[in-house]
């Protein structure tokens, strides 16, 4: 079977099964969450922008903006993988992003990368999913490739 490659843009997520590579490029302060069930060889990637869903967020908007917020992005990845027969006890997570590209950029965006990473870890812990690897923080942008044949997540930086 020919390997499929899906590009996951800002605010998007995708669940797929082997043989597939999920790719997300140009990650600055955003965080990319990769979940993998090794036994089923099913995985998902979300490219989230902001830590927490606002209280007044309309749930009807989810279809387009599902993975805009870290908390919902993780929940959507987990629930969609479960609907394909995965068990959260078999899922492992790898995350990347949360960089601070400009030191003088507003306080909001300086902190947002860090908050995105913290929120990801918090939600994963609450859902009982093990975080096995991370490439987070710093001042450099990243691109992420998630191979669902092997579960390997590769990080590419331009510098």
């Amino acid at each position: 079977m020919k390997e499929k490659v899906y590009l996951i843009g800002m605010g998007e997520y995708k669940i797929a099964s082997n043989p597939t590579t999920l790719v997300s490029s140009g990650i600055g302060s955003c965080v990319v969450i990769c979940l993998y069930d090794r036994t089923k060889k099913i995985g998902g990637m979300a490219h989230a922008m902001l830590p927490q869903t606002p209280e007044d967020y309309k749930i009807d908007d989810d279809e387009e903006d599902g993975a805009r917020y870290v908390d919902r992005a993780v929940q959507l990845l987990v629930s969609n993988m479960k609907s394909l027969g995965c068990d959260s006890s078999n899922m492992m997570a790898k995350i990347a992003g949360g960089a601070n590209m400009f030191s003088t950029l507003g306080t909001y965006s300086r902190e947002i990368g860090e908050n995105n990473v913290e929120m990801t870890k918090k939600i994963l812990a609450e859902m009982g999913i093990k975080l096995v690897a991370e490439s987070t923080g710093g001042t450099t942008g990243r691109s992420v490739e998630f191979n669902l044949i092997t579960g390997v997540v590769s990080i590419v930086t331009k510098l």
Partner: peptide, 18 residues
């Protein structure tokens, strides 16, 4: 002003958050 060198996409990604 502030300055950085990186991929165009990553730079714009950070601005999107701002």
């Amino acid at each position: 002003p502030d300055i950085t060198s990186d991929s165009a996409e990553s730079i714009m990604n950070s601005l999107a958050i701002e």
